[in-house]
Design a protein around this nucleic acid. Structure first.
Length: 611
DNA sequence: ATAGGGTTAG
């Protein structure tokens, strides 16, 4: 049982600073650099000081005017100018300053070359960043690292790994920053399997050179394994960390939350609060924790987290609120989600998307479209995810024409080009409505523009996993979960160690008999084994969802809503039995299947038997 | 000589 409470001792714990000492005394040799003495001798004159001061005041244009009259700008002047160009997001000014650098011979200064690479990276001009690197003759580790970072940020992981081997050939030693960029490069690399191998190789380099004592390096390593879905490797790294801080705890919690292990995520949060000393969960931690609650439909847990967020004053942070909104939605509490949304002081496109997807998931397609329109009316431009949410909503509600119109408006009105997911939504929408010809046409018309894939990492992991499962012809066992008094109980139909199993079976048999008297015929077509009808009926009656419903009936108070989550789609038999139970036992039953919500009340389901 | 890393929403 994992009830969350914050112990007094944790609340009052004082902040202590921990320093990390590497276990190995080996250090990369310092690369000595010499700058043209005539350049370094240049003294800050009045003009230089004026330029620097203008840069600090954000008056870039004025600074540039003076620069053009100054024959001897100093290193510090250039540093401030470069920084200023990046801050003003002005590539043309950046190129201009770069030109002055070349004129005055400062472009070969590795310090300024590093700054230039960072500037171009911030200005989204990777080609210029690369060019600076290529033209710099004295490449210190800072110069290498700057390019690695820039390339990683735009998803050119393979290029980083390639350059890394070049760097090793000419025997430039890596430092702790190099390793963090390399690990990120593996994640940003195109080939998943190959880069996992590469990541393990870099892990070995890290150990060999004694960098396992650096918390930044180890946290990045943990995160890399997490993003590859290698939870056990990530756990291993986490367990071996000599000291942990807020970020490493958060990274590990995120790992569990993102890899389908929400219970582990919540357990680790509890452990963090008890043993984490000065590591208080922050907004980033909360986002992952809320995802875990959402995955489990653990409403009571989620409410406790909500309380914690309020107490810690994290309730103005947009990512926190958006995940809170989603958590309520995925726990079946549409109204609470709406309330959270209504109370937000500012909203961004993600907050709107969360609300749209909440309504969509519950089958309120029209409402979802309304919210979408309200969003655009209020001047918030929809993102590609807005369309995934609203098209999904149309699909769940069977709103074919509306969906087609929205899909069409995507490119025409908003210049957003549909991705695989958008096409999948359309195929789903048309397919469900039995308009197969049109669905086929959508597939034929597909023209996918390759976009930056870094962002889609988790989807990719999921896809690969599904692929592997399909290859191994493994059927995913149906699993249903229910939260009773802040404890999560999970049911798998083949599990023999289910609590109160006899009681549950007895109740189900009784319900089934009762239903048969009222004309119910068990629907056994999901059983794909050659068995006699009676045996098939027995199997269907043992479906995990029915077990969870029965468990809920026995263990919750009369009139209390029963909330269930299921990892697969609902089967038709479970659907009709749950409808019956909602009427017979006079209970509201909320079931979230892999796609959407079913809200059973008085013998009727919110999906209108269309799912 | 100087400089720069890690965890986050739909």
């Amino acid at each position: 049982m994992w009830v969350l409470h914050i112990p007094q001792s944790v609340q009052q714990a004082s902040f202590r600073t921990q320093f990390y000492q590497p276990t190995c005394t080996w250090r990369p040799p310092v690369c000595s650099l010499t700058i043209n003495p005539s350049l370094s001798a240049a003294k800050d004159n009045n003009n230089n000081q004026l330029i620097q001061s203008l840069c600090r005041q954000g008056k870039l244009k004025h600074a540039l005017e003076i620069l053009s009259e100054e024959p001897n700008p100093t290193q510090q002047t250039f540093e401030l100018l470069i920084h200023s160009c990046a801050r003003h997001n002005s590539l043309s000014d950046g190129l201009n300053v770069h030109g002055h650098l070349v004129d005055s011979g400062f472009d070969q200064d590795p310090f300024l070359a590093t700054k230039l690479i960072n500037m171009y990276s911030e200005l989204d001009s990777i080609d210029n960043a690369r060019k600076v690197f290529e033209e710099t003759r004295k490449r210190t580790i800072y110069v290498w690292n700057a390019l690695f970072r820039a390339l990683t940020m735009v998803g050119h992981g393979e290029e980083v790994l390639h350059l890394y081997s070049e760097m090793n050939l000419i025997e430039v030693p890596s430092d702790r920053f190099t390793y963090t960029y390399l690990l990120k490069a593996c994640v940003a690399s195109e080939s998943l399997v190959l880069s996992l191998l590469k990541g393990k190789e870099i892990h070995a380099h890290i150990l060999r050179h004694g960098y396992e004592a650096y918390i930044h390096v180890m946290t990045t390593l943990l995160d890399m394994y997490a993003r590859f879905g290698c939870v056990s490797y990530a756990t291993c790294v986490f367990d071996k960390m000599p000291v942990r801080n807020l970020v490493s705890w958060s990274a590990m919690i995120a790992c569990y939350a993102k890899n389908g292990m929400p219970v582990k995520a919540l357990e680790l949060l509890r452990k963090m609060m008890l043993e984490g000393h000065d590591s208080f969960p922050n907004s980033v931690t909360m986002v992952s924790v809320l995802q875990a609650c959402a995955a489990l439909a653990a409403l009571e847990q989620g409410k406790l987290i909500h309380g914690y967020i309020l107490r810690r004053g994290l309730d103005s942070i947009l990512p926190v609120i958006s995940s809170l909104l989603t958590m309520y939605g995925r726990c079946g509490e549409l109204a609470l989600g709406q309330q959270v949304f209504d109370q937000m002081e500012r909203r961004d496109v993600v907050s709107w998307n969360s609300l749209i997807s909440n309504y969509g998931m519950h089958g309120f397609g029209k409402r979802a479209i309304q919210i979408f329109e309200e969003m655009t009316y209020q001047g918030v431009s929809p993102s590609n995810v807005s369309f995934i949410s609203v098209l999904g909503a149309c699909s769940h509600a069977g709103l074919v024409e509306e969906g087609k119109a929205l899909f069409e408006s995507m490119v025409r009105k908003y210049r957003i080009y549909p991705s695989v997911e958008h096409y999948a939504c359309m195929v789903d929408l048309l397919g469900r409505a039995n308009r197969l010809d049109e669905a086929v046409k959508v597939i034929e018309d597909m023209r996918i523009e390759p976009g930056p894939e870094k962002l889609k990492m988790w989807d990719e992991v999921k896809r690969v996993k599904q692929l592997l499962e399909a290859r191994g012809l493994q059927k995913i066992p149906g699993c249903s979960s229910i939260e009773v008094r802040r404890k999560i109980y999970s049911f798998v139909s083949v599990d023999e160690f289910i609590p109160q199993i006899e009681q549950l079976h007895a109740l189900l048999v009784k319900l089934s008999t009762e239903m048969k008297e009222q004309g119910y015929v068990p629907n056994t077509k999901v059983v794909l084994y050659d068995l006699d009808e009676e045996e098939k009926e027995r199997i269907v009656l043992g479906h995990s969802e029915k077990l969870a419903v029965a468990f809920g009936l026995i263990n919750t108070a009369k009139g209390e809503t029963i909330r269930i989550t299921k990892n697969l789609r609902l089967c038709e038999d479970c659907h009709s039995v749950t409808k019956f139970v909602s009427k017979f036992a006079n209970r509201e039953i909320l079931v979230r299947d892999v796609n959407r919500f079913h809200h059973f009340r008085a013998g009727i389901c919110s999906c209108g038997d269309y799912w």
